[in-house]
Write a protein that binds this DNA or RNA. Structure first.
Lengths: 251, 251
DNA sequence: TTTCTAAAGTTGTCTGACAACTTTTCTGAC
DNA sequence: GTCAGAAAAGTTGTCAGACAACTTTAGAAA
């Protein structure tokens, strides 16, 4: 339930066919391992040319939903495991961004802890270099969003687990671009104070990681990202205590 | 660096063309917003038919890497944000699974904390129901992997943040299937003892969430998943202290 | 300079054909 | 009756050509 698809008419026939087949697969009407109708059958059933059907199947194959075997047919992929993606359409609300930021916080807090356990001297040095880059950008009066992202990436890389930087990079594309909005609402003085506090938080994170202090690294990163979240939440109007929306009285 | 692609010859021309274009985009040779070569140009340059080129572009469009405008051309999508996916090819190593499990732990530990803050009475009841389903399955002598997954999903849903269950569902497809391996190496007695301990851990997690005890919920979930990780790590031969592989002496 | 029109360029769709490969069916020997 | 091999049918992969729908550019006219 609640898949939130882009359900526009899509003047593209191939996309319509793809949406149809994709729904059949995710809806369970086509079980994993089952064979799709032949291209000929689909052209007849849907009233489109084979070109369109083939492009639709190519798209499904790119999403990992089906595999094709020449001479045999197209089959639903085993774990029906399409890629993970975040809506990222035009109707992204502030609540959507908060949801993604919470997910990001979960990953980065743990990344800081793992980095404190595992970071090499060289990786810690990379963090300090990234920190100084932010400082330099701030002194130039810039927002330093790219430098900030690089800083967080160096921590993710220090986990020794490639999934962390990869996932962070993915999330970054969905959160970072809007940070300019956040910064633009303040006066220059407020903004400068804010950015300096951020840098101080960054420094504490690096210190903890450098010391191998897992607990403190986690705490510092959590505080850093939680403040970022709170700031966003305030922007949302303060009426939501969390991204869920609907209230539910417990206790 | 270190992208770890499936670089098999791939007897499918369209996939080769797609890989080529995909690399051009991710490698920055085609900047966001830039126009791709026309289909005609690609057919000439790559020596393939227009059918092949069109299928490749359709695949890229499905991945969100390009958008096409009829009569105008194909353009690199703005945030160049393809979907997040985990390798999941045939050559998945134990280290790969450990990497994913660490990412999962990061997300689920935070999910338990958020659930402790936000879960409604109904959602807590759903957790207890899922817990009893595991119990019933164990009494029937089953492995209860599906029930276990449902249990964890109820917690993710109780965060009120849709990203958590969605991401967990995605990761589940890459980790859960292999749990059968884990269970098959034990004697029935060992296995039973293990599963009962798991259930005890589950119960502590639910209690903490039900009490609204954020710290304890986090701790219980972390302990639960860390033990799972350690078990896997032992299987890997114990020679790796973490998934990174290469050693790097610090301190 | 501005505006309208025509032309060229580009993607979207259809049709037909053949190659490469897999699955099924048929045939013949035992 | 059973099995092995060959033939046939079925299916995806690739190529080629054509036209429709739409966009961009170039040119003509005011």
């Amino acid at each position: 339930m609640s898949d939130k698809q882009d359900q526009r008419p899509s003047n593209n026939l191939a996309e319509q066919v793809m949406a149809r087949l994709s729904a059949d697969i995710r809806g369970g009407r086509l079980a994993p391992g089952a064979r799709l109708p032949t291209e000929q059958a689909l052209t007849a059933e849907l009233g489109v040319s084979r070109t369109v059907v083939r492009e639709a199947v190519a798209a499904l194959r790119a999403d990992g939903l089906v595999v094709t075997r020449r001479g045999s047919g197209a089959y639903v992929a085993d774990p029906a495991a399409g890629p993970f993606r975040i809506a990222a359409s035009t109707d992204t609300t502030l609540d959507d961004i908060l949801s993604v930021m919470e997910l990001r916080r979960a990953v980065e807090v743990e990344a800081a802890a793992l980095a404190a356990e595992r970071a090499s001297r060289r990786q810690v040095a990379a963090m300090r270099t990234a920190w100084r880059s932010i400082d330099a950008a701030l002194k130039r009066g810039e927002g330093a969003v790219a430098e900030d992202f690089t800083f967080h990436r160096t921590i993710a890389e220090a986990t020794g687990n490639d999934q962390f930087p990869r996932f962070l990079a993915y999330l970054g594309g969905h959160v970072i671009p809007r940070q300019s909005v956040r910064l633009s609402v303040d006066t220059p003085a407020e903004r400068r104070a804010y950015l300096e506090r951020i840098q101080h938080e960054h420094a504490r994170i690096v210190s903890a990681i450098s010391d191998g202090d897992v607990v403190e690294a986690r705490r510092a990163m959590r505080e850093h990202l939680t403040r970022s979240l709170e700031r966003y939440r305030a922007l949302a109007g303060g009426k939501n205590t969390h991204s869920g929306g609907s209230s539910h009285g417990r206790r």
